[in-house]
Design a protein around this nucleic acid. Structure first.
Length: 128
DNA sequence: AGCGTGACGAGTA
DNA sequence: ATACTCGCCACGC
């Protein structure tokens, strides 16, 4: 967390406004339909700029305003520290989960990326 | 300028 | 399936 710091919008005329990149990331996050998820990499690729880590940083800083639990890691592992919260949303939305069949002792389920992953088909309007 | 650090991802062992 | 490595990019020190 040493890298994170408030958006020093040096030059920006609107202190309340988020960096444009962050704004775009959050915008995509809001497009993800309930019951589906998008990986950091997918979001970055869809935006056509930045990378998974950049998307991750944005979510870490401003994700609170959007359905953050729908932006996930490619391997389907739930967010450290938010596992239960995310899990609650997933169960409520019916997001495909992969519950380990054996030795589930204290084992937190992971997302079933094969089915939960959403590529953005259908909302293409606006992306050119 | 270089180095370390991340809500990452893919490849390899 | 797990563990480790390397590539990636922006940012803080």
């Amino acid at each position: 967390m040493s890298q994170e710091s408030l958006p020093s919008d040096s030059g920006s005329a609107h202190p309340d406004a988020l960096p444009e990149y962050a704004e775009r990331v959050l915008e995509v996050a809001e497009l993800i339909p309930p019951g589906r998820v998008m990986t950091y990499g997918d979001v970055a690729e869809w935006l056509g700029e930045g990378g998974p880590r950049q998307v991750g940083r944005v979510m870490a800083l401003y994700g609170g305003a959007v359905p953050w639990w729908r932006v996930v890691r490619a391997d389907g592992v739930l967010l450290p520290g938010h596992e239960l919260r995310a899990l609650g949303h997933y169960r409520a939305e019916g997001t495909p989960l992969r519950e380990a069949g054996r030795a589930t002792e204290g084992h937190v389920p992971r997302l079933d990326m094969k089915h939960a992953r959403w590529d953005g088909a259908g909302h293409t309007e606006g992306h050119t």
